[in-house]
């Protein structure tokens, strides 16, 4: 039964997303001109390509994000059972988060969270 519902969901999702695109393609008027191709309608004209080399700072943020992303994975099953486990569960997660908070503190003190 579950798989049938999933297939129905996939069909509905494709119809929902694709239907709008096809309908607007079918009934909308089309025109192309130079101004329409601009990324911003008004403001400073853009120059060069958007494929520029990014600052290494973004990468650092992505790495820190990933670490806390993995932390979140462990907090999810904890959150499901914390009520039944009670006080012990709370103490366990406090230790867990305290150790990771040290990491955040380290990142803060090292200036990794500061934008250059």
């Amino acid at each position: 039964m579950g798989a049938g519902v999933l297939i129905l969901l996939i069909i509905c999702g494709v119809a929902f997303a694709g239907g709008g695109i096809i309908l607007s393609w079918a009934i909308a008027k089309r025109s192309t001109n130079l101004v329409k191709g601009e990324p911003y309608e008004c403001g400073i004209p853009t120059s060069g390509t958007s494929w520029i080399q990014f600052n290494v700072g973004y990468y650092l943020f992505a790495l820190i994000f990933l670490v806390f992303d993995v932390e979140l994975v462990f907090m999810y099953p904890w959150a499901v059972v914390v009520k039944s486990v009670g006080m012990v569960g709370l103490v366990e997660i406090v230790i867990f988060m305290f150790i990771l908070f040290m990491g955040l503190l380290y990142a803060y003190r090292k200036g990794a969270l500061k934008w250059m």
């Binding site: 650092l60 993995v70 462990f74 867990f96 990771l100 990491g103 955040l104 380290y106 990142a107």
Partner: peptide
């Protein structure tokens, strides 16, 4: 479970 937090801490400090 608690050791994992140590591992994550090591990863965080390492990447910084």
């Amino acid at each position: 479970f608690e050791v994992v937090s140590m591992l994550l801490l090591a990863a965080l400090i390492g990447c910084i």
